[in-house]
Simulated assay, not measured.
Amino acid sequence: MKQIIVLSGSPTTYSHTALVLQQISDLLAYRGCNVKKVSVRDVEPETIFNARFDDPQIISIVNDFQNADGIVIGSPVYKGSYTGVLKALIDLFPEDSFKGTPVLPVMVGGSSHHMLAIEYALKPLLSALKGELLQGVYLLDKHVDKTSAPYVRNIDILQRIHKQIEQFIAEMDKNRSFVHVKSE
């Protein structure tokens, strides 16, 4: 069973980003993946603020990421970029934490004017951790219905999400085949 880590970079409890990541998590679980969700809100603020690389919680989170078959990272767009707390948390990860692992970036913004935030902000941050980055998905807040699941109902966006999930799973399968052949 594929092990997936889903990280929400949203500092708010009930955010559009968290709901989109929940829907993606559900779709991955339906496809037979074991999904573990992590939020920046799960980490003690003092740990992040004081850059405690050796904190047991950080060590555990990093270990989960390093052992994952796939990673999904989502963030709302704040000032044309990802959230500061997401950056502060990722700064605590060793530089090759995502090495060889497919990474699906997801961003949710209030305007289409920030659509390139995924390309020019989030992807460069994630590439520093050596992950295999997929195209990713950018959504607008207005496409997320907070009242009930499924939270994203727009057919065009759902098709993009499903296409990215298919590619994500294919990349994980390819990596598993490579590791299996390499170890024989």
Rank of each mutant, 00 (worst) to 15 (best):
D55Y: 02
N67D: 11
L122Q: 05
I58M: 08
P124Y: 07
D64Y: 04
K87E: 09
G9W: 11
N63K: 15
A149Y: 11
I118K: 10
Y30G: 00
M1P: 14
L139F: 12
G136D: 01
Q167E: 12
R153H: 03
H114L: 03
K87S: 10
K87H: 10
S112D: 13
A29C: 07
Q22A: 09
E95Q: 13
P56W: 05
L140W: 06
T17S: 03
I58T: 01
F98W: 05
L89M: 12
I165V: 14
S8N: 12
Q22N: 13
H113I: 07
H113M: 13
Y120S: 07
L133D: 02
L86Y: 12
M172G: 01
Y138T: 05
L129I: 08
M115V: 15
K182F: 15
R153S: 11
P76K: 11
C33N: 08
S127F: 11
Q167Y: 09
I165M: 04
K123P: 05
L19F: 12
L19W: 02
D141R: 13
L19K: 15
S97G: 01
E44L: 12
E132D: 15
I169G: 00
E95I: 09
N67I: 01
V62Q: 14
F98D: 04
S81K: 08
N34Q: 13
V137P: 04
D69R: 01
P102Y: 12
F53K: 12
L126K: 07
Q57F: 07
V137K: 01
K123N: 05
G110P: 13
S15I: 05
A117D: 10
